[in-house]
Structures are given as C-alpha cells and as structure tokens.
Design a protein around this nucleic acid. Sequence first.
DNA 1: ATTAATTTACGATTACTTACAATATTTTTT
DNA 2: AAAAAATATTGTAAGTAATCGTAAATTAAT
Lengths: 260, 260
Amino acid sequence: MSYLIQHRQQKILELLAGKEHVSVTDLSKSLDVSEVTIRTDLNKLDKLGKIARIHGGAYLIEERLKQEYTFQTRKSLNHSNKQKIGALASTFVDSSDCILLDSSSTVLTLAQAIKKRNDLKDITVIPTGIWTAIELMGCSNINVLLPGGYLRHTTGSITGLPTNDFFRDLLIQKAFLGAWGISYGEGLTDTHLLEIELKKFIITRAREVIILVDGSKFRQIGLSAYANINQVSKIITDASAPAEEVERIRNSGVEVLIAN
Amino acid sequence: MSYLIQHRQQKILELLAGKEHVSVTDLSKSLDVSEVTIRTDLNKLDKLGKIARIHGGAYLIEERLKQEYTFQTRKSLNHSNKQKIGALASTFVDSSDCILLDSSSTVLTLAQAIKKRNDLKDITVIPTGIWTAIELMGCSNINVLLPGGYLRHTTGSITGLPTNDFFRDLLIQKAFLGAWGISYGEGLTDTHLLEIELKKFIITRAREVIILVDGSKFRQIGLSAYANINQVSKIITDASAPAEEVERIRNSGVEVLIAN
DNA sequence: ATTAATTTACGATTACTTACAATATTTTTT
DNA sequence: AAAAAATATTGTAAGTAATCGTAAATTAAT
C-alpha cells in the first residue's frame, strides 16, 4: 500500500479545510509518516502559498482555498469504491423507514443508490448535509426532513446547537454515518468538533448505526473519536480495507461487510 | 494472459477514474506486468495529457467537476426586473444584521446582490429555501442558519411544523418575503398553505418586513393571504407595477420603492 | 526473420527516516 | 517580572529504502 506524496498533501489540505489548524504531531500520527516528512510537506505547501506555516503546525486562512477542497472534490476521491459501498448499503433500507444520512461523501452515494430503488415506498430521510438533501429532492417517494442549524460552507454540513436541538425529540431507525478515520483501537474519528458532537448525539437517538467508510479511512485517525467500534451495528467498506484490521473488528463482534 | 497495450492503458485510466491516485507498484501487481512497463505506460499517458505523472504513480487530471446542482434559475421573463429589485433591496442590509430570506425567486436575486457586497461584515442569513442557502454558502462573511423542516420537491422551500418550531425562539431584524399575489384589497397572498402558515408566523417574529415583488404579481390573487398590506414596512417592486395600485398602497401609509 | 513489447539489471534520483544540534516556546524558579 | 530550566519544534545531515530512466537481453507477434 504505497503512499503517494500528492495524495498525502491533498489529505493535509483536506484536513485543514475542515478544521482550520493542524499540528505536525497530529498529522504525523494520522497519516502514519515521520514528522520530518510532514514538515517538508507543510513547507512545500507553504511555498506554494496554499497554507500558512506556523510553529508546530499550519493554518489555512484563505477562504478561497477552503472552498477548493469542498465536498465536490472529496466526492471524486475513491468514487467507484464509494459507489459500491453505497449500493450495498441501500439494501438495508426498507419501505416506511426513517433514516438519517450524514454529510460524508461516501454516504452521498447511498442517497444516489436509494434514488434508483423504486421499490421503496414512503421513506423519510434526514440528511445532515445539504448536498444529500438536494440529491434526494426530486424523488416523490422520499420525504426529506432537513435539520436546522448552521451551514458549513466547506462541506455543506449542518451543525451547531440548533441541530442538536432538532434531534432531541426524534427517534431514528437507522443512521448511516461516514468517518474521517476508523481503527479498532481509536474507533470512529472525525476532524471537526461540531460534527463530532453531532454524531455523538445522533448515535444516542438512533436504534441502528451503520458506518460507511472506504478502505482509505482505515489507518487514518482524526482529531477526536465520536464512537467506539462496538457502538455500531454494521460497518460497510470496500475490498481495499486492510484485512487484518477488518478481522480484528469482526472478532470484537461487529459485522463488517465488504462491497464488491 | 497477454493483453494489448491499449487495453492495458485503458484499464489504467479506468482504475484511475475511480481511485484518483494510482501507484506504479499496485498497477504492476493488479495488471500483472513489470513496473517498467507500467512506467512507460504512465509516461505515455502523461505525454498525451490524459494523466499527471508523479513520483510513485499518477493522478487523474479531471476538468473541474461541474457543480451538479444545475441551478434551476427559474427562467422567468422578468429576470432582469427581479435583479433590479434584488439590488435595491440589498441596500437595506447592514453589517451584523440577522435577516431572513424566503424561498421565492425574487428574493433569490437579493441573495445574489448581497454576495456582491463585500462591505458587509458578519451578517446572519436565515433562508427558508435551499437554493438561497446554496447561493450564500461560499461567502465567508455570511453565516447561513438553515431552519429545520420538510423540503418541498417543487420549490426547494423548507416548511412544516419543525420550521415553525425553529422560528419560535428567534427574533429576526429584517424579513425579506416574496408573494404569489399582491393587491391593496386582498393583501399578500400565496398558493401553498404550509408556506402561508410559515410566513404568517415569520411576520410575528420579525421587526421589519420587506416585500419583494415584481410587477406581474399585482392583480394576481393566491389561495389565501398571509398578511395585510399595512403589516409590512416596505414593498420593493419594478416599473411594471400598475401605477394606480401602487398609489393606493402608498396612500395607506406603506412605503413602495420602484427599482430601476 | 524482423519488429515490437516486455523484462531484467543497474546506477542515478527521489523520498523517507533516524539522529542531533540549534532555535523557539512554555514552565518553573528566583 | 526576569532568569533559568524544561519541553517542543525546527532544519540539516547522513543513512536507508523506494522509484526512476536507460539499455541490453528476452519474449511475443506478424
């Protein structure tokens, strides 16, 4: 599983777009390379004018760049694998369900898969991202219930206190969530605190939690965890997921499905 | 197992289309040829401009994925008039304001006008339609607070009980509303009951109500009224509005502005 | 038999890591 | 509040590993 520098640097920018600031130490751990490598990466990106280097890490102040690494670009990463994951996940949706779809790009492919299934009648979808909402807008058999909250312009996700309030009185049957990183030890991690808070809360309101992650998310660790592995009922991923990690998770009793 | 070169290179492109990044090592293994062969393939594809070569592999150079939400800027005959109305309305927005924009197409032009004004600092916009929300998403100086509620397929507006609940605790400085019909006698009318309910409610929560209607809306009457003329503080319209009706409204004490 | 495609081999290049001294930052002491 | 000590972060250099391009050797295709 050879890493490409381009890939890594893009990941750094992606991370930065989500949380404005990154530290060399965290990046080193998350991306599994030495700190020196991260430093040269950051210095390179600094020279290119893409980030602002500071002692201990880097900042991304320019709004222009944040938008560059928005949802649209994330969507194109690993797209075919993500589509397979979405297709498999859609088989777990039934008529009359009330499901939640988070704002991750992997979960968006689930929305697309649901659209194609015309056997589903009268389902209610609660999307926590605006792009998913739009994806599902045209479907007459799908009720879209949008949560209130602040709209993040980088990712199009809906978060904040109003969002948590919105979910307080709801009971969701199935919550489909993505993650920035997943590992047996650290659990499910993400990079943005507001989203972490929201996901934590959603899990308490959902009867069944299904995780959708492509293989690249294994061995990545985000800023903070929103759940342990054993808090979820299913994990759906693709064949590029590292086998030994999958095995470890399975041994702990959590169902892991590989989409092909 | 002998492949044709073109076949193999096509396969590389296909793999790339899904993964965005590919490494020489992985390609060599999966296509069962030596790394040198892969390298010459990649270099060839690079020369053709189909991929971008980097140390260790290659990445896809895709023409900027078009924003797929194919903005349904409703092809209205009065578009230029609406734009003028939006531009004039934007002069009533100040820094630090908290304003509400409804889901009508006329008010959408106000959102576009606000985007262009970079003298406005730190304003909060509550849009009751998803298209307005997206229009304002990119702007760093604008906080977008999305109300919760059901998303209507046809118009992209957010309505229903959850929406009313959302506004219950809010106090809005300025509410910019459209209307399906406007007349001195019937007041401001609309065609959809949920939207009527919502607008009635919004008016009770707003300190100032500003109506944006193009001239064609005069002498149209909808299903039911959401407000009387004298409940609003300003009406902004264009030169095509019938003069005698405008005069009648002005005489009742409501300010009517004509955008040019 | 001739040409094209691929592989093997190898020195050159690039990328990454470890190690370490220099600098910056924070904490503790005075 | 300043000085001293402890901690963290930095850039550089040397060593290791991976990847590169080239060319000769091998294999496949016509």
